[in-house]
Structures are given as structure tokens and as C-alpha cells.
Amino acid sequence: MSVIRRNNVLVRGSGQRTIVFSHGFGCDQAMWRFVSPSFENDFTTVLFDHVGAGRSDLNAYDPHKYSSLTGYADDLVEIGEALGLQNAVFVGHSVSAMIGVLASLKAPALFGDLVLVGPSARYINEEGYHGGFEEDDIDELLASLGDNHMGWSKAMAPAIMGNADRPELAEELTDSFCRTDPDIARRFARVTFTSDNRSDLPHVKARTLVLQCRDDIIASEEVGEYVRDHIPGSKMVLLNATGHCPNLSAPGEVVAAIREFV
């Protein structure tokens, strides 16, 4: 199984430098649909789905490997190696911010710049640390994942593919966004919201930009500031956008901030 197929890697654009866009918990590479096209003229863009999300190869989902963010970071490094990337730009949303951090520690030559959109090094509150959530919240989230019928049967996957040119199927196509196997979603949620990468931050060598939204219930400003303060030399830009997904709600602002930085 090639890495390219496994992670549904999509390479577009033309440019000396490559930008890799990495989606977070909940959706797939479609999260970047309003952002990545803006870079295709002067960058090579790379989009991919984490294993278990989007159109990745579900058969490659190994609960043991993906029981920590390291498994996802290993995949990211493999994608970089398969594409021969060096000194690329990494743009990671939500949990992918820390996946990018881990990958940059493992393969320092891979990324010269890291753009972390709504990052959090630790979601759960602790003595002396404010992550925004209590352990009970995470347990309740895991328990409630079954309430929504987000799980699409494996048989439905082919219907999602290549219908963009058939508008009558638009609803079916778009309705497939953010649908994941419930069991995988539960495991990914657990990995995401119980991870603790605070000790990794000081080792980051890549130039780092934190993009922080206002009023983000998943990763508050305080959490973003923690990341900024612990990655040496990093800086933070506070966007006007509210919520957790500026890549969808304020793509222009996100594009401008990334361009300003790289």
C-alpha cells in the first residue's frame, strides 16, 4: 500500500516551495478547500487525509499505531519522504498542529516553517495549566459520539468520489464531509483530547506561527498563548475570526497571515 493512496494525498499547484495542509479532528482535507487553492500559483500544495478520515484507506487503520499522535506524525513524515520534501511549509489545524510539531521533531529537515491553526498542547485542565476541558467533558464527548449518525457505511464510500461535475449529486457529495466510521471517530477523539505535547514544544526548531481565533471553545487564546510561549522564537497572530475553523469561516484572513509569514 503506497503512502500516497493510504493517506489520499493530493498534490497540486506549481512552485519551488511546498505547503502541506493537515486537517484536524472531525473532518478531512476538504477543510482546506477555501485556503489551499490560493497558494497553487506560487506553491506546490499537498493535501491529505489522516488514516481513518475522509477517503484514506480504512484498512490501514491500526488501532495500536493510531493510539497516540506519534502514529499520525509518522504518517506525515512518510508522506514528506515519499514526495521528497525539504524545508516545506506545514499548515496544521487543531490536533494536526501537534502532529506537525511531532513530525518536525522526528524529521527536522522536512519543514522549515510551521503554521499552527488553533493549536493546543493539552486540552485537559491541570494544576497550573488551563486547557479548557475537564476529563469528564472528554468522557461525555466519547460517550455521545454514538448519538450522531455520522458513520457512513463502508459501502457508501464510492459514492463520494468524483461527483463534482454532476451538480445533481452535489448534496450527496457534500453531505459526506466530516463523516467517519464511529469507532475510528471515537478513538481519534480520545487520542486528540487526551494528548499532552507540552514537553515537545521547547524542542521545536522550525520557524513557527500560531494562528489564533477569538472565541474558540476548542482552543482558547490562553491555550494558543501557551504554545507561542513555549515554542522558541514563535509568534502568534490573533485573527478577527471567531470559532475553531477560521480556514472555513475566514479563509481570506488565514491565507493573508500564512503569506505574510512564509
Partner: peptide
């Protein structure tokens, strides 16, 4: 509740924006 907000923000807000 908090857990509902988390799910809403990571799944349904993106869906609304995209589709």
C-alpha cells in the same frame, strides 16, 4: 453541554460552512 459544543464545533460548524 461542553461535550456537545466540542462535537458541534468540530463536525457541524464545518459542515455548515462547507455545504
Amino acid at each position: 453541554p461542553v461535550s456537545g459544543r466540542m462535537f458541534y464545533e468540530t463536525h457541524f460548524s464545518p459542515m455548515l460552512r462547507m455545504q
